[in-house]
Simulated assay, not measured.
Amino acid sequence: MNNEFVRYLKKRLIKLALHVFWLFPIEDNKISLLNELSFTYGDSLKYFDRFIHSNKKNEFQVVFPVKKESESSEYEDDIIVRPMSMQYFRQLITSRVIITNAGGVSYLPKRKGQIIISTWHGGGPYKKTGTDVYKNPWYKKQAKMNSDNTDYILSSCKSFSEIEAPSMGYSINQIIPAGLPRNDVLFVNHDEINNKVRKALGISNDTKFVLFAPTFRSKGNEFSNMSVAKDYIELDTDRLIKGLEEKYGCKWACGVRLHPKLANIDMSSLNVVNCTSYPDMQELLCCADAVISDYSSLIWDYSFTYRPIFLYAPDIEMYEKERGFYMPSSEWPYPIAHDNDEMEKVIIEFDSESYIQRVKEHHKVADSYEKGTACNILLRLIEK
C-alpha cells in the first residue's frame, strides 16, 4: 500500500477524532511550541521560549512537548507533555497560538481564533523541498493540509519566499520575512556559549574547533521513505586536522555531529569528538572556528558568523541530479571538495578576505532577512 496514502488517511482520521477536544475552551495566553523534527527542547522553539521568558515573563503559558521523560525545558513554569498523548492534543487544541518548525500540524482541527505559525527548519536557497522533490500525489495532499492549516510561515530570505515556500503550498500572504529565530543567537556575543560547549566537549581554549556535520540522504521520492545513502564517513579526519594545523599554525580538534538517522555509526576508531548527542546545534555553531558540511541548511546559519565553511560533497553531481538545488552549487560562496585530496587543497588555498566578500554577496543575492531579530518579529506577530 502507498505509504503516503496511509499517512494522509491517518491524519484525516486523527483530525476528525480530535474534534472532541473542542469541548474545552481556548486559553488566550497559551502558546504551544513544537519541535516536530525531534520533539526535543531545541531548534527555533527553544530560542523563542527563552525570548518569551526574557521579555514577556508571566504573560504567556508555554506548552513544550518533549518525547523523553528525562528531558524538560529551561523553565519550571512551562507545561511539558509527551507527544501524541491525550494531554498533548488537549494542550494544543486549547492553545491560542501554535508554533511549529515543520508543517502546519495538519492533523489538528484548527479552531476559530487560533493562530498556527511555522518557523520552518532550514534557511537559504539550497536543496529543493516540498512538491519540487516529492511527487507522490498523496504527499501533495498532505502538503496542502499543512499550508491550509497554517496562518504564517517565517522566511529566511527572498529566495525562500519566492521559490521554496510556494513548493510547500504557501501563498505570499502567509510568508513573513523574519529570518529563523534560532539564528538570532549568531548575531550576539558567543563567549559564554563558547566556554560552555568547550567544557562539555573537553576541548581546551587554545585548540581550534572544526565541526563536521553532513546531512541525510533521501531514498526515492517519498517523504516517508527517508534513509541515508551513506552509512559511513568518507572524510579523512586525520588528514583534515593536519591540513588545518598546517594552514593556521595551531592545534585543531574535529567534532562530528551526525544526522539522527546516522547516529548509530561507531566513531570510536576516529580521532574526533562525537558531538551527535550535544543537544543544541546552534551552540555548536557559535563555538566552531570552521564548519564542514554538504547540503545541510546549517551552512546558511553558520554563514552569518563569516567563519570558514568547506563543503565535502563527493556525490554532489548525483545529489543535484536526483534532488536538485534552488541555486546552483557553483554559485554558492563555499569552497567545494569532491574527495580528500581536494579538501586538503581548498583548506590550504583558502583566503579569508575574498571568502567573506563572497558570503556577503551571497546574502545580498539571496536577499537575506536574517538580522538577529526573528524572535522579536515572531512575538509581534502573535501579539497583533
Rank of each mutant, 00 (worst) to 15 (best):
H338W: 05
V197K: 06
G123I: 02
V105W: 00
A102E: 11
V133E: 03
C157F: 07
F325C: 09
R198A: 10
Y355C: 01
A165L: 06
P260A: 09
D301V: 08
R50L: 13
R111S: 03
Q61G: 01
Y88K: 06
T305F: 08
I176M: 14
K345W: 06
I98G: 02
L270R: 14
L311Q: 08
Y355P: 01
Q87C: 13
E76K: 14
I172A: 15
V291A: 11
P214E: 01
E344H: 08
L23V: 14
Y88Q: 10
D289I: 07
M343K: 00
S72Y: 11
I176Q: 09
Y295P: 01
F24W: 15
N221F: 14
K46F: 05
S72T: 15
P214V: 04
M318N: 14
S155N: 02
I193R: 08
V66E: 04
A213V: 06
S161L: 02
P260S: 10
C375Y: 07
E349K: 10
F160P: 00
N194A: 11
G220P: 02
M318R: 15
Y232I: 04
S352T: 09
L45N: 11
Y355N: 02
R198T: 08
G202A: 08
Y312S: 04
Y302W: 07
I79L: 13
L379M: 15
F39N: 03
S156R: 00
M145W: 03
V63A: 11
H53S: 09
N35R: 10
